[in-house]
């Protein structure tokens, strides 16, 4: 059976989310309390749109909330998203509730009250911006094993000392390996005789805090 999703509130987020979910074959219903936004959402093919305040139980009933599998609350107000998810959980018994929250401090509270997934747009965006701002240096992608292992992304610029060198010619610390090289559209798992070129993006796997020494070796900084 097709999974049924309910999107409550939000305009541009709902629009792009609805398009992408419909394309993946889900059945999607959107609830919005602004008539103009509803008209715009209604231009999306196969999207069911309901005009009304999604924090009101009878509107959720109109949207047949009890038959939905997932509800996503996307309004700009934290309190509205909170009530939408709580109503869906406790009254309509929807299995999975997802809430957008604008104040990062409320994330824990939302989880505590039983909301299954809480997305904080502000912390997500600031962390991406932070990554982008420092991308010329290094981006730590994932700390693994309580931070003992780091997977980092290192862009190689034209003036880096390793450009043109083969892997075995480089003097990398022992606890570091180059796991992957991203070159344009290609991803390659390098061997000892692979040459580093300018513009490569190197994925480093390093342990024991050796990543800074490795990055210095790779980029000269």
């Amino acid at each position: 059976m097709k999974q049924r999703l309910l999107l409550v509130g939000g305009k541009s987020k709902t629009k792009s989310l609805a398009i992408s979910l419909l394309a993946k074959g889900y059945q999607v219903t959107a609830i919005n309390d602004t008539y103009e936004d509803c008209l715009e959402l209604a231009t999306i093919d196969k999207l069911c749109v309901i005009h009304g305040d999604g924090t009101k139980p009878f509107i959720l009933e109109d949207a047949d909330a009890s038959s939905a599998d997932i509800v996503i609350a996307l309004t700009t107000k934290d309190e509205d998203n909170f009530v939408i998810c709580e109503l869906c959980k406790k009254r309509f018994h929807i299995k999975k509730t997802v809430a957008l929250v604008s104040d990062p401090k409320k994330t824990d509270f939302f989880y505590k009250m039983g909301i299954d997934s809480v997305v904080c747009a502000i912390s997500a965006i600031t962390s991406i911006i932070e990554q982008q701002a420092f991308i010329d240096k290094m981006t730590t992608l994932v700390p693994v094993g309580e931070g003992r292992l780091q997977i980092s992304e290192v862009p190689i610029t034209g003036n880096a000392p390793v450009v043109g060198k083969k892997l075995w010619e480089m003097n990398l610390p022992n606890e570091v390996i180059i796991g992957c090289i991203l070159r344009g559209e290609k991803t390659m798992v390098p061997r000892g005789d692979t040459r580093i070129l300018a513009g490569d993006l190197i994925v480093l796997i390093s342990s024991n805090g050796q990543e800074l020494a490795a990055i210095k070796e790779l980029t000269g900084r």
Binding site: T55, D78, E79, D80, F82, V83, E86, F109, K112, M113
Partner: peptide, 14 residues
Amino acid sequence: DNINIMVAQIAHEL
């Protein structure tokens, strides 16, 4: 109503 509900839950639970 929604603010009231949320404030109440915060006061009661947290």
